[in-house]
């Protein structure tokens, strides 16, 4: 290496800090929007899988298997380019990215929610039925609030995965952190510095979210909201 060029030079990174932070903001926005959407869809799919209708159950099963099996790379290309080709739906980049992440995460979250709902003791629903609540009321006031506490930790993990997954959205040109880092790295010819910085930013985001969720969980435990030790594992569903 030319001796006049310093080995590490983070000045370039500093000079593009606004771009990187903007990308970071967009990444966090995409992840947050996607996880909120995914929770709504995931809950619906989970309820479908637990419903009495054979058709709904079948649909929910296929939905879950499909979106848990498809790689994000393929899904994002399919949503962004595929929909445009097949159905003439031209989504802008950021919404396409959010929809992709929401679809993917809803597949995982629906399974989490389903096992969370099943983990609520059956005695709870029986007691509720005994005091005369309707089926809908039992779901709404008895089962779901308790299931919520069980699925909190795995949902936090899913949020973390969504943040990490935003990096792949750079493939379709969403101007998120990785895309910005790539562009700036090419511009300054300093890939090591830029990718290290990007890595540090992702690390901070992931740690922040992890700490936030364990804080909420602790808070709930202290109030006595927890209902036992059943936790839903979702190890291995992370890329």
């Amino acid at each position: 290496m030319d001796s006049s060029v310093p080995l590490f030079d983070f000045a370039a990174v500093w000079s593009s800090r606004t771009l990187l932070l903007e990308g970071f903001g967009i990444a966090m926005f995409c992840a947050t929007a996607a996880i909120i959407l995914a929770m709504i869809i995931g809950l619906l799919i989970a309820l479908m899988r637990l419903s009495n209708s054979r058709f709904l159950r079948g649909f929910a099963f296929v939905y879950t298997q499909l979106f848990r099996g498809v790689p994000l790379y393929v899904l994002v290309i399919w949503v962004y380019f595929g929909l445009a080709i097949v159905a003439d739906i031209n989504l802008p980049k950021i919404p396409a990215g959010i929809i992709t992440l929401a679809l993917l995460n809803s597949g995982y979250l629906s399974e989490t929610f389903r096992s969370g709902i099943l983990a609520v003791n059956i005695g709870q629903s029986e007691a509720a039925a005994a005091i005369g609540l309707t089926k809908r009321q039992i779901k709404r006031y008895i089962v779901l609030p308790q299931a919520f506490r069980i699925v909190l930790a795995p949902s936090g993990n899913q949020f973390v995965d969504a943040i990490k997954d935003t990096a792949i959205l750079s493939i379709i040109g969403v101007p998120e952190l990785m895309r910005m880092a790539q562009q700036q790295a090419d511009l300054f010819y300093r890939p090591f510095e830029f990718y290290t910085t990007a890595g540090i930013l992702y690390f901070i985001a992931v740690m922040g979210v992890t700490k936030l969720f364990s804080f909420i969980e602790k808070k709930m435990n202290r109030i006595g909201f927890t209902n036992g030790s059943q936790k839903v594992a979702n190890v291995g569903e992370y890329i």
């Binding site: 890939p191 090591f192 990718y195 890595g199």
Partner: peptide, 25 residues
């Protein structure tokens, strides 16, 4: 382990392939 779990695979790929190779040959 914490760091490894927090980094997106995409970032790791670029970091190893472009970052490390250029910096440390």
């Amino acid at each position: 382990v914490q760091v490894g779990r927090s980094l997106p695979l995409f970032v790791l790929l670029f970091w190893i392939y472009y970052g490390l190779s250029l910096k440390f040959k």
